[in-house]
Design a protein around this nucleic acid. Structure first.
Length: 479
RNA sequence: UCCCCUGUAGCUCAAUCGGUAGAGCGAGCGGCUGUUAACCGCUAGGUUCGAGGUUCGAGUCCUCGCGGGGGAGCCA
């Protein structure tokens, strides 16, 4: 085991026939021949494809362990790489030695040599990365994360770490998870020594005095790093955050998670037009990187998950995102002869059915809707001169819907205070946010991209719970 | 949180009007084969999600609970 194993991906693409190599991974399937030799499909997660191992019956110890080389077992193999006479692979490994590292009882191992439903695999999230689909998702997700950093770093953006525990309420972003130690203290006060685990019927005190809490005031898990990102953007130039985000909404859909990852750029001296340009270039760069760097995985998604994926992505690369104002969007939706479950009028939120119609049918490509009514948007968005709209924008894409939400920020102190009060908020609570407007205020803009929604777009997967390794949703936080 | 659907073998699903529990895949065994979604034969595998109820009789009908899916709202 002292030898560093080669990766299957490297061997399949660049492995030299005749070279001595060592590999390690998990058996996907084994086929035995009458002559006593076997074919083993070995997967090590480095790529979709398996490496075919040919094991002759006279390999030391092979006949003894052969029956244990079942789907899911792990092995360490050394041998010579040879050109393969088979049509489906360029090279194969002829084993000189083969060591069984761990068995996987075929009667019990949940992953069979057959197709499983995603619902079933979600129940065995600790094993699903061993499947083709979830391996591909993990690799694409990794590629996307790298592409995101590269996009911003190459443009001089600074990566800023905004807090996960926060006492600022980014109004409009939804319910927050409270972070508290008061439960521990109340339990200690009752003379109990152990804190009940999740799911135990702990009875919290009827009233919580957060002045006695760890932070001396109510603290929560962040729903957005935007307000803090603005601090650095108005000091250091363009910045971006890339971190986990938490929403305690009781949302039970294929597009919502209680814990998800969000990327939030914030750019000083930038208006909404610049913000929209940045959003479009950003999405296109991620799409391009996935197609360039994960070709095999992307073709798998197109073949086995959703055969419109590659077409949709190419369409995204080939066209400018269509920009329409909220007012135009309402006009289009109301002037079509379709009947809507929820009729819209100016001032209403666009419903999912309207957004889908616009991006999937009417335009057939990603669109950016901008200048929304101020009454349906949060306090921090820049107020237009018309007195009734704010400089907000949503990027809508086919099948997924809203993938980016952003805005130009209100940088005029008087207008900000007006809006805070209009939204029923106390300007005093936002004293540091207001200071950014009192001292050297500048126009600035930003947006948030949901990483998992981006992955839905890229992979064609239907459920957001399947594009994050360990999904957290109401009633679900296993693994 | 609301509306609709659903829960049967390890997995995916059948089971007519309420009348003896079935198939495919997977697994085990055997056969065949430089194989590769392998193929052929045989075998095993069930508290039909749980608790009540209606009925001579419940997988099937009713009530409640729990789980899963789809849609909606909230949003990324």
């Amino acid at each position: 085991m002292s030898t560093q194993a080669a990766r299957v991906a490297t061997l399949l693409t660049r492995g030299e026939p005749g070279s001595q190599v060592v590999v390690a991974g998990w058996v996907r399937t084994r086929r035995d021949s009458k002559q006593g030799f076997s074919f083993i499909e070995l997967n090590d997660g480095s790529c979709m494809a398996n490496l075919q191992i040919v094991v002759d019956g006279n390999v030391p110890g092979f006949t003894e362990i052969k029956s244990d080389l079942t789907t899911g077992s792990s092995v360490h193999v050394a041998g010579e790489l040879k050109e393969s006479p088979g049509a489906k692979q360029r090279v194969e490994l002829h084993a000189a030695s083969l060591e069984l590292l761990g068995t996987a009882d075929a009667d019990e191992y949940p992953l069979q040599k057959k197709r499983h439903s995603f619902e079933f695999l979600r129940e065995i999230a600790h094993l699903r990365p061993r499947t083709n689909t979830f391996g591909a998702i993990a690799r694409v997700r990794n590629c996307v994360c790298r592409a995101i950093h590269e996009f911003f770093q190459s443009r001089g953006f600074l990566n800023v770490q905004t807090p996960i525990i926060t006492t600022s309420d980014c109004e409009g972003a939804g319910e927050m998870f409270t972070v508290t130690t008061l439960l521990h203290e109340s339990i200690a006060a009752r003379g109990e020594t152990k804190v009940p685990g999740p799911g135990t019927a702990a009875s919290p005190p009827s009233t919580l005095n957060f002045q006695n809490d760890f932070f001396g005031k109510r603290a929560s898990l962040t729903v957005s790093g935007q307000l803090e990102a603005e601090i650095f953007a108005t000091s250091l130039g363009p910045v971006y955050t890339f971190g986990p985000t938490f929403r305690a909404e009781n949302s039970n859909t294929a597009r919502h998670l209680a814990e998800f990852w969000m990327i939030e750029p914030e750019v000083p001296f930038c208006d909404l037009d610049g913000d929209m340009q940045l959003a479009e270039a950003f999405i296109k760069s991620i799409v391009q990187a996935s197609l360039d760097e994960c070709r095999e995985d992307m073709e798998f998604f197109n073949e086995r998950i959703d055969n419109t994926v590659l077409g949709t992505l190419q369409n995204i690369l080939d066209h400018e995102f269509k920009r329409i104002s909220y007012s135009e969007a309402v006009d289009i939706v109301t002037s079509t002869d379709r009947t809507w479950e929820y009729p819209v009028k100016w001032g209403d939120n666009l419903q999912a059915e309207h957004e889908r119609f616009l991006t999937e049918e009417h335009f057939g490509q990603p669109i950016i809707v901008f200048d929304y009514p101020r009454t349906i948007k949060p306090f921090y968005m820049y107020c237009n001169d018309d007195g009734r709209t704010v400089r907000a924008m949503d990027v809508l894409v086919p099948r997924v819907g809203e993938i980016i939400g952003g805005s130009q920020r209100e940088h005029r102190l008087e207008t900000l205070d007006l809006r805070l009060r209009e939204c029923g908020l106390d300007p005093a609570d936002y004293w540091w946010y207001r200071d950014l407007r009192r001292y050297g205020s500048v126009p600035h803009s930003g947006f948030g991209l949901g990483l998992e929604r981006m992955l839905l777009l890229l992979t064609g997967m239907q459920n957001i719970r399947d594009v994050i390794p360990f999904p957290r949703t109401p009633k679900h936080a296993d693994f």
